[in-house]
């Protein structure tokens, strides 16, 4: 591929990086701390493309045809506009408890008499090793719905670098059902208030997900940042 064509490819991929970084789309693909580096490097790519077209300082050698491959992410970003990962991934992973990051010192019993907001991954981790923290406390979880033969789950994915390393966490919901009395549909976002069924999901690498007896289920909008 010659120099001018390469410059167009570079400007296009730089523009994709800029767009993803400036809008909230970045949250579908990468973690928060990647956002501004993405904007800066997207800008750098566009700048380098212009520099290359308007300066004639350098050699005109042909670059390898692998450069054509760089058009693919640009086209996919535009044609497919892929959504954040959801139930498809969650069904193929189980609760990856041992991978949860939590701070031992910060694990104090939840306050009685009011509802505490927890991440789904926190809830799963507490149930597995710090059951005493959860016992009797009212918690609120936010996530999307997945199903299996045992019932339905409030589910959340967690990423540490990018969506390729997503881990899934899920809590089975028991008791109250959706607004109209039936379980909510797959991939709907819900807020669930309830209490932990003591003993469920205990032990690192537990086969079964922890269970939450729900008192209240509210449909909600997908959050701006889909992953925990």
């Amino acid at each position: 591929m010659n120099r001018n064509a390469q410059a167009v490819v570079l400007a296009a991929i730089g523009a994709v990086a800029l767009r993803v970084g400036i809008t909230d789309e970045y949250a579908r693909y990468v973690n928060d701390w990647m956002r501004w580096p993405l904007v800066v490097s997207g800008g750098a790519m566009v700048a380098l493309a212009f520099l290359a077209v308007f300066s004639r300082d350098h050699d005109d050698s042909e670059a390898s045809s692998a450069v054509w491959a760089m058009l693919l992410p640009v086209v996919i970003a535009f044609v497919v506009q892929p959504p954040a990962l959801g139930a498809y991934v969650a069904e193929r992973r189980s609760n990856d408890v041992s991978a949860v990051q939590y701070d031992r010192a910060a694990v104090a019993p939840l306050p009685a008499g009011r509802v505490s907001d927890l991440l789904v991954s926190e809830f799963v981790a507490y149930a597995s090793v710090y059951g005493e923290v959860l016992a009797g406390a009212q918690v609120r979880l936010r996530g999307f719905v997945t199903h299996d033969e045992d019932g339905w789950y409030v589910t959340r994915l967690s990423i540490s670098c990018c969506a390729a390393d997503a881990l899934a966490f899920r809590v089975r919901v028991d008791g109250a059902d959706g607004v109209d009395g039936s379980a909510p549909g797959d991939e709907e976002w819900v807020e669930v208030v309830g209490t932990w069924v003591e003993g469920t999901g205990e032990g690192v690498g537990a086969e079964d997900a922890p269970v939450l007896t729900a008192t209240e289920i509210t449909p909600t909008d997908p959050p701006k940042r889909p992953y925990e």
Binding site: I13, V16, A17, V20, Y26, R28, Y29, V30, M34, P37, L38, V40, S41, G42, A44, M45, P73, I76, A77, V79, V80, P82, P83, A84, L85, A87, Y88, V89, C161, C162, A163, A164
Partner: peptide, 26 residues
């Protein structure tokens, strides 16, 4: 292009590319 597997592939593919861009530029 709504197949769940294809869309998941597209998201993961773009995530790998997007994630690599700042490191590659650096």
């Amino acid at each position: 292009l709504e197949g769940a597997a294809f869309q998941t592939w597209a998201t993961v593919f773009l995530a790998i590319v997007v994630q690599s861009i700042p490191f590659l530029v650096l």
